[in-house]
């Protein structure tokens, strides 16, 4: 490692509403920082190159792949993980709908899936089933076959619009 390129980076960010200061290796991925350094094990590392979506977390309002972003890039960012989104109750209705519809089996993809679902519902209040399916195609689930997830998102979209 050359002296010019520092291999440790100091970062300050907000994670789940709490300020975090850390010195991280330059190569540390955001998902590893959250899981290994902060003990936030809700989001998971799975494909490790941005395909499956199991590591999806919310960064500055967007659903982001934790395995494609470095922790150093999150300096100054506002990060929310499933733990924080659960604590605030921000997606309680979505979580309840997932349980009611059994839109999860093993649960490994679920935290990332929920972040993606919430982003869709924020951007499109009443998506069609095809739109839900397209939007969630960056989040793999090997257990459910997806239909129950689509049902759950549809239920929440309608309920939030007062349609049920």
């Amino acid at each position: 490692m050359s002296d010019v390129f520092r291999n440790k980076v100091d970062i300050t960010l907000t994670v789940n509403g709490e300020e975090v200061e850390a010195r991280v290796p330059a190569g540390r991925h955001l998902i590893d920082f959250l899981r290994l350094d902060l003990g936030l094990t809700g989001a998971h590392a799975s494909c490790e190159h941005g395909v499956c979506g199991a590591c999806t977390v919310k960064v500055d309002g967007d659903a982001v792949r934790g395995c494609l972003m470095l922790a150093a890039q999150a300096d100054g960012a506002e990060v929310w993980t499933i733990e924080g989104m659960s604590d605030t109750g921000a997606i309680r209705d979505l979580q309840d709908a997932f349980v009611t519809r059994n839109a999860l089996q093993c649960g490994f993809c679920t935290p990332g899936m929920l972040v993606a679902c919430e982003e869709l519902l924020t951007r499109d209040a009443l998506p069609e089933r095809d739109e839900i399916r397209d939007y969630l195609s960056g989040n793999y689930c090997r257990c459910t076959g997806y239909e129950a997830i689509v049902d759950a998102v549809e239920d929440v979209a309608k309920a939030r619009r007062g349609l049920t």
Binding site: R35, S86, L104, F108
Partner: peptide
């Protein structure tokens, strides 16, 4: 009837080996 373990999985409270 609801699955007793589903509630914690949707909150990211699963307990997998790598955790």
């Amino acid at each position: 009837v609801p699955r007793p373990n589903a509630g914690r999985l949707v909150e990211g409270r699963g307990h997998y080996v790598d955790d």
